[in-house]
Design a protein around this nucleic acid. Sequence first.
DNA 1: AGCTCTTATGAATCATTGA
DNA 2: GTCAATGATTCATAAGAGC
Lengths: 297, 297
Amino acid sequence: MRPNQINIIYKGDCAKRLAEETRFPKNSIDLIITSPPYADRRKTTYGGIHGDKYVEWFLPISKELYRILKTNGSFVMNIKENVEGGERQTYVLELILSLKEQGWLWTEEYCWYKKNCHPGKWINRFRDSWERCLHFTKNKRFKMYQDSVKVPIGDWSKRRFKSMTNKDFVRTISGTKSKFGRNVSNWLNKRKVYPHNVLDFENEHYIEPTTMVHFATACSNRNHSAAFPLELPSWFMKLFTRKGDIILDPFMGIGTTGMAAVLLERNYMGIEISGEYVREARNNIKKVKRFRKTKLH
Amino acid sequence: MRPNQINIIYKGDCAKRLAEETRFPKNSIDLIITSPPYADRRKTTYGGIHGDKYVEWFLPISKELYRILKTNGSFVMNIKENVEGGERQTYVLELILSLKEQGWLWTEEYCWYKKNCHPGKWINRFRDSWERCLHFTKNKRFKMYQDSVKVPIGDWSKRRFKSMTNKDFVRTISGTKSKFGRNVSNWLNKRKVYPHNVLDFENEHYIEPTTMVHFATACSNRNHSAAFPLELPSWFMKLFTRKGDIILDPFMGIGTTGMAAVLLERNYMGIEISGEYVREARNNIKKVKRFRKTKLH
DNA sequence: AGCTCTTATGAATCATTGA
DNA sequence: GTCAATGATTCATAAGAGC
């Protein structure tokens, strides 16, 4: 069965919304990707779930997610435990163990390496520049389209570098965009390889650059910062779905997942408890749709 | 109390060795850094501890480690759970929870991003290119010398050196006659910033390049590859200890921790169960000592 | 000595085969 | 069936040979 409506955002508490079986029939979603509220964050909307209560709060939601996900689908959760009392909290670890008891397979943990992380200075730690992207599935075999996220081959193609003189180095450093850059990028495009499980979006261009640039200029929303950037859901969508598949984000926020889905010609479904976020998400997605029509076709 | 001997490697099972109180008095070690055998690895030496038994096996060891670590010391464990039956194993998660019950504070989880990870291609996952470096302490306040691991920053420098191996880097600067060499010296004196909690040794050079290069040429051991490269223990040593401090590796292997300690003028202690590894570790450390005398002084 | 090119090999994982 | 051993797959680095 298919959901009775797709490409829609429902306002409400996702535990309740997900239980509506005509809207969310079993085995109907190809990919669930979300960044749930972290413990003690988003206090206004979700009442600031404490770390001690986090697993208890999440399990009814993940039970519904398990029901509605296709047997060959994937569930990707972007999360990072915050620090409390000088220690990393343990609720993410406990959540992984509990999800396994619920029937989920903990297939992989991707590392999202974000170099431009939040600023700050503490005496007992450095800035946190990575987050977990937990990959759960219902079965050992699931849909995975690895070719769609291939990246240019690594820099060991520096045989190219070695043939260069010191002059070339200096010119590269001083000159902004010399022919050096173009040559190398040409060379690199000759061969593509599979990526690994650290997502480093600053170095690699997983979204087609032209699409990305056009889009960035077309819809720039500085008012609110997304929980995750467009690249993150886009990467997993390309990896685990094909065009026309249905992708769900039960904590839709300002609609980043929906925007990525539209750009990649997938169908989205979203749930969001905050009315303000719902409005903004709908608006953002509308902008993306308009952009796709005008610029890409 | 101080250990009755330092700069020594004991052969034996570390659970038993650590209990010898004259050799390992309580509150006597400044930093414990180790990469314990991963589950089902190193079968010949450690009997291949299975994931199900891993926590049970490790807890008696960590109990002794807690006893001998100074109250302001740190315990850094490099580990990564492997895949079994298509899923990531959970023994590392369980170990973290159990260590907390034992009294340890789980202060931080650093991510070691290793780009030269094992090759391979599978239908359900990509290559694993990161490992956990779990940071445990006995107290909220502990010794941390953040300034000692600051990294040079520069708009061009990072981009420039990203694609160079240490060897290239060293070779390049050693030709100081060139203009490029002078540029590099400038780079070394540039403004420095604090790193973050992703260790990315390809991009940053945490060991002084000259030391690094001289050493690489002086002692190259092909026979055995270290579990972790010299940079990893070096980085944590600089961060959590000062010259003259005592550093313990209860799973010494071929002595990488000891080599780093000698290079950084710290004292080391090690335990290793394999006689062959003990010999090689002693030999490696001897080489480093000789190197330090001849090349650096 | 310095550069180019070749070759070997990693804390891996999965499917298949054989006991 | 269950478990163990083997082969296939793959990318980046470093050592070694040759000029």
